[in-house]
Structure formats: C-alpha cells, structure tokens
C-alpha cells in the first residue's frame, strides 16, 4: 500500500459535528498531564518513517463520531481527570480537522474540562490560531531541526511547525515540546544542540519530552503492506538518551525521557 499526499482539506470541511477518528483511549497517562481521555484522530500528511500508527494516516480511514458523543464520553470520565487531567486530541494530525476541534474544545471548556492538543504543527491559518486559543496545553512534536533531515524523516518540511511554535510563544500560553529519538535519524549531536538552541529564549515551554524510538509499531506497517524503513533500527541506549537529555538541558528546563 502506498499513501500519496491527500486532499486533507476534505477532513476539515465535512460536517462540523462529525470528527474522523482512529480510536479512543480512556486512561491516557502519556499524552499530557494527569489522566486523560485521548482522541486519536484519523489522517496525517506527514509520512514519518517511524510512525507508530500508520493506520491513522489515510484520511479516508477510521470512523466518524459526533462531537456530542465525544463530550458525553469525556463527561463520564471527568471524575478521573482530577485537577490536572482532561482530554487530549492526538493523531493522526489534529490540525487537519481544526475547525471541528474548535467546536469540541468549546464544548469541553463549557464543562470545565482541560484541553490538550498533540500536533506536528502541519497547518497554520486563522482556524489553527483559534483552536490554539482554546488549547490549554499544546504538545508540539518537532521531529527534526534540520530541514533536509526533517524531509527525509517525514517527507515534509518543518517550516510551519516552527511557525506554530513561534505563534504559541507570542500568545504566552503553555506548551510542551516532544522529540522522538531515533538512532541514526535524530541523534546527531550538532542538531540536538541546534534544536534546543532554537527554543532557548522561549518562555512558554514548560517541559520537553524525549520519546525513545521503539519497534512496537512495526507489525502495523507489515499488516498494511507498507514498506517499513526502520526494520533494523535499534531502540536507543540509555546512555544515548541521557546524552540527548544533557544537551537539551543546556538550553531548556525540565527535560524528561519518556
């Protein structure tokens, strides 16, 4: 199976009350603070070589759910969100359905539920800005700082991603940066320095998460008959991760390894 770039605007324009999702997680503890309901949306333009959920790329895949249904599910779990948890929208790439998410986040806020957006920062327009206004915490995945490497890794550039970081910084609202550490792909020391240095003046970054690459997504690539380029890539060593953490920590606070 080959997934060329798709007309992703379709995702955003369809019925405002319907969201195309891949799956739901009801006790998410790894995508934002506390216990969260995580909505994995369907559809992504990035073609990350290490993608753990290649089945969430196709904009025609997944299932359609109503915003109402998602809100009522979140309400049933609200007690478990406690003081810091809430709802995270991850993916896929949430920004491809930004208009609908504005609606979702408004509904969640009406019920006092914290909102979190986990994004690779693909699209920046007025709708994105509106959505970010309603996003209590942005988890921004900056996959590589070097343009060429970023393209090799994801098939697209990081230009918009960095612009979104800049925009978020201008609003003063908090964000966490996420970085998937892949041996041979994202472990070059010079670029680790460059990546962290790029954000060193940012005031809105509250946490930086280094996420070690693992092979758990591999079987999905095989299931989908897609060519998986990282078959022989090992998981990073603790030493390499600690080193990356040390480099990031030269420029940024609160760096953690997931």
């Amino acid at each position: 199976m080959y997934l060329p770039e798709q007309d992703t605007h379709l995702l955003n324009e369809f019925d405002i009350d319907l969201l195309r999702i891949h799956s739901l997680e009801t006790f998410g503890t790894h995508d934002g603070p506390g216990i969260r309901m995580v909505v994995f949306v369907q559809g992504c333009q990035f073609r990350c070589l290490y993608c753990q959920n290649p089945d969430s790329i196709d904009i025609h895949g997944g299932i359609l759910v109503t915003i109402d249904e998602l809100v009522s599910k979140a309400l049933k779990q609200k007690a478990y969100f406690g003081k810091v948890g809430g709802v995270t929208v991850s993916g896929g790439e949430p920004l491809l359905q930004r208009t609908k998410l504005i609606h979702l986040f408004d509904c969640l806020h009406e019920h006092g539920i914290n909102t979190c957006l986990d994004s690779n920062g693909r699209v920046l327009d007025d709708n994105t800005k509106e959505l970010l206004d309603r996003t209590d915490l942005l988890l921004l995945d900056v996959k590589h700082i070097n343009q060429e490497w970023h393209k090799k890794l994801t098939s697209l550039t990081n230009t918009t991603t960095l612009k979104i970081a800049e925009h978020r910084e201008s609003t003063g609202k908090p964000m966490w940066l996420r970085y998937v550490f892949v041996p041979g792909w994202t472990d070059q020391e010079e670029y680790l320095h460059e990546w962290a240095r790029h954000f060193s003046d940012y005031k809105t970054i509250k946490r930086v998460e280094i996420i070690p690459f693992h092979q758990l997504g591999k079987h999905k690539w095989e299931l989908m008959n897609m060519e998986y380029a990282l078959t022989d890539t090992p998981s990073p060593t603790t030493e390499a991760l600690e080193n990356a953490k040390a480099i990031f920590s030269l420029y940024l606070d609160n760096v953690t390894i997931k």
Binding site: F27, T29, H30, I35, A79, Y80, F81, G82, V84, T256
Partner: peptide
C-alpha cells in the same frame, strides 16, 4: 507503565483514580 511515566506520575494518577472511583 499505564499508570504513568515515572513513580511520581504513577502515584498521582493512582490517588486520582481512587478519589474518582
């Protein structure tokens, strides 16, 4: 691991779960 990334998070999430339940 499902309770959180480190002991501190796991403790916080378990106490929240118990409070909620």
């Amino acid at each position: 691991k499902s309770l959180g990334n480190n002991l501190e998070e796991q403790v916080a999430n378990l106490t929240t779960t118990l409070d909620a339940y």
